[in-house]
Design a protein around this nucleic acid. Structure first.
Lengths: 182, 182
DNA sequence: GGGTTCATGTAATGGGTTACATGATTCC
DNA sequence: GGAATCATGTAACCCATTACATGAACCC
């Protein structure tokens, strides 16, 4: 995974230091991954050099100065562009969660679009898995059968969650538009 | 991820060529990952050099010769050793599926042990997630809340699947032992 | 006294992906 | 005619992890 977009997305939520980003991810490794300091800091430096973020150095008496990074206009534009384009091959779960956690940086319509895309991808993955299994479920080895069951269970749960979440977001959108237009 | 153990585990199921391994993984990228040819072939070369696998070259008229790799005794020993030791930090989902798919290379008792360990890890992840959420569910941003819900849903499904699978394996073990001893 | 938290940074290392090279057959 | 399948391999590149460096305050 490349953490460039992800780090930018975290800064899209609110200005943070590299240390803050790392802290926010502690306990979430299994869902989003946990980039090392080396990775975060160098990503931050690169983003700064490209003008996608700005820094504010906050000196502290004893501890090294905090460097709080904020997203720039150019950075927000790139984030928007990135949000619009889907990975053609399909995001991994971690990549999806990375997009999900920075939902605040994008519009509700954009978020709905993300979830719709994810729904399609997961549905396709589930379908191809089921197809594979139908043909050779009987003669498949134990390992393959276990993976097959496991994959179907995870896919079904994710589809259900996506449908549920999309439903709630859709209701909110209707309600908001109802207030605006009525 | 390091594909060394995984490739060895695939060969533990049955002798295969590099191309076979890659083919077996097509359509399973989202679950186990899909190493590139470059990665698979160099891994195979390294395993060969370490004496963990052997090759059998099968010439073909027009196509390049198939190189079918088989696991050696040393390889099987290493696989057993690897199976016994758990990643201290907890496996990622992909790493777990990698272990799962090569269930045929290990004993049923070993498999049960694997699933038990995974159950512990997922339970711990779920617990820390819930703990995090309880404190600041109200003031958390939308993205964090979505990830929280998503993570709980996935964790619950996996726990249920693990319990179910462990139950079935346990029954089979009892049945087998029943035949043996009675 | 020793481990943990806060806070940043650099350099080496490892290993996976991408791109390239080769080459005949088969399907559209 | 062009794309896909079968089948292996090498080299460059990218980038994440690991290890190292610095330094004070706080808790057991």
């Amino acid at each position: 995974v490349n953490y460039r977009h992800f780090v930018l997305g975290m800064l899209g939520k609110e200005p943070m230091s590299g240390y803050d980003i790392k802290s926010a991810l502690d306990g979430l490794e299994w869902l989003v991954g946990n980039p090392s300091f080396g990775s975060i800091y160098s990503t931050l430096h690169a983003l700064l050099e490209d003008g996608l973020v700005t820094v504010q150095v906050i000196p502290q008496q004893v501890k090294p100065a905090r460097k709080v990074y904020s997203i720039s206009d150019a950075g927000r534009r790139l984030l928007q562009k990135w949000e619009a384009e889907a990975e053609p091959s399909g995001d991994s779960t971690k990549a999806f969660v990375m997009r999900l956690i920075m939902a605040d940086s994008i519009s509700r319509a954009g978020l709905i679009e993300q979830l719709r895309r994810r729904r399609e991808q997961v549905a396709a993955q589930r379908a191809s898995l089921e197809e594979d299994g139908d043909g050779n479920a009987a003669q498949a080895d134990r390992g393959s059968r276990l993976v097959w069951e496991y994959g179907l269970a995870l896919a079904d749960t994710e589809l259900a969650w996506l449908d549920d979440t999309l439903g709630r977001l859709f209701e909110q959108t209707l309600a908001t538009e109802g207030v605006e237009t009525g």
